[in-house]
Design a protein around this nucleic acid. Structure first.
Lengths: 108, 108
DNA sequence: AAGTTAATTAACTTACTGGTTAAGTACAGA
DNA sequence: TCTGTACTTAACCAGTAAGTTAATTAACTT
């Protein structure tokens, strides 16, 4: 569910905004060219995914970023980090090989 | 686009499988309770997102994992890593505080 | 009590997603 | 050349997602 919540660019922008600190629903809605209702729905999706939480302060619902689900994404990526480091290493090896001298370069 | 490709559990399972090495379309389809056509579509989504690439070997299309988009997700997470480390640090500080002695514990 | 501001709920439209079956393409082997 | 295997394309369907406007709830302001 986390990943599908993150799939929408509006929602990612909201998270980016919240990384800078709490904000109310209308503050969050302000930069977007869509109705407040639409943003409110996006916030509901984020909330269900646990990516944000909402407080109550008079008529405002201050939203704040919740780190857990993002950390889980990070954990999920861990299994692949090994994989792409392997690929990167191969590139670095190759780069190092090239630097040993131009005569080692292929197709020349 | 990467995130929406990753939002589907079938597609994530396919990537997990491919992290172990190349596989053909029907090999990839085998564990799933859905038609080969459906899996083929999932592969197309993954391919469009750059998460996999397909080769041609006789009548087979060996698929392999491509690291770039995943690395981009990792980069995107970077901005939030700081954020959740802050939260974690606060917890660790608190845990350290507790370990200094039980009389420091609250509500006791 | 009346009006304003903040936000949600309801009802609806449009478009996309994830699956299906049926038909088509391309290659390999007898 | 015919048959089987691997896969894709096309057409379709049901469910979900993202947006809209209108109505509703709730709290502060005067």
């Amino acid at each position: 569910m986390t990943l599908s919540a993150l799939a929408d660019p509006t929602r990612r922008a909201i998270l980016a905004r919240l990384a800078g600190g709490e904000a109310s629903v209308s503050e969050l809605a302000e930069p977007f060219d869509m109705s407040l209702v639409a943003v409110s729905k996006h916030l509901k999706v984020l909330e269900k995914a646990g990516l944000i939480s909402k407080g109550r302060e008079a008529q405002w619902r201050p939203c704040r970023l919740e780190p857990k689900p993002l950390r889980q994404v990070d954990d999920w990526l861990e299994s692949y980090r090994q994989f792409w480091n392997d690929n990167l290493d191969r590139l670095e090896d190759y780069a190092a090989l090239l630097q040993k001298g131009e005569m080692d370069e292929p197709s020349k």
